[in-house]
C-alpha cells in the first residue's frame, strides 16, 4: 500500500501523511492539533489535492501551528513523494 509523508512535528510545522485507499473511494482528511483552523485547513487540502489531481488517498495532517504556506508546502512535498513511490 502506497504511503508517503512530509514535514515534521516541530513547533510551527505540520506532518502530512498520504495513504493509498481503494480506487474510487475519493479523498478523506483527518486533522489533529488545532481546532480553530479546521475550515482553513480543509480548504487548503482540497485546493492543493485538486491542483495536483490526486484522489483515492487518505490525508492525515498533524498540525503544530503551521501557517498556510507551510501546510501547502508539506502537502506538495508529500504528494510528490507519493507519486514517485513505487510501493
Amino acid at each position: 500500500m502506497k504511503k508517503a509523508l512530509a514535514g515534521t512535528l516541530e513547533s510551527s510545522d505540520c506532518c502530512v501523511t498520504l495513504t493509498e485507499k481503494n480506487l474510487g473511494s475519493g479523498l478523506s482528511l483527518t486533522v489533529s492539533g488545532t481546532e480553530r483552523f479546521m475550515s482553513a485547513i480543509t480548504e487548503t487540502v482540497g485546493d492543493v489535492a485538486g491542483s495536483f489531481g490526486i484522489s483515492d488517498v487518505d490525508i492525515f495532517v498533524q498540525d503544530r501551528g503551521a501557517l498556510d504556506v507551510v501546510l501547502r508546502s508539506r502537502l506538495e512535498a508529500a504528494i510528490l513523494r507519493y507519486e514517485t513511490d513505487e510501493a
Binding site: 512530509a6 504556506v69 507551510v70 508546502s73 508539506r74 506538495e76 512535498a77 510528490l80
Partner: peptide, 15 residues
C-alpha cells in the same frame, strides 16, 4: 532536499 526546496520556494514567493 525535495521538501525543503518546496518550502523555501513557497516562503520566498509569499512572505
Amino acid at each position: 532536499k525535495d521538501a525543503a526546496r518546496i518550502l523555501v520556494r513557497n516562503v520566498l514567493s509569499s512572505q
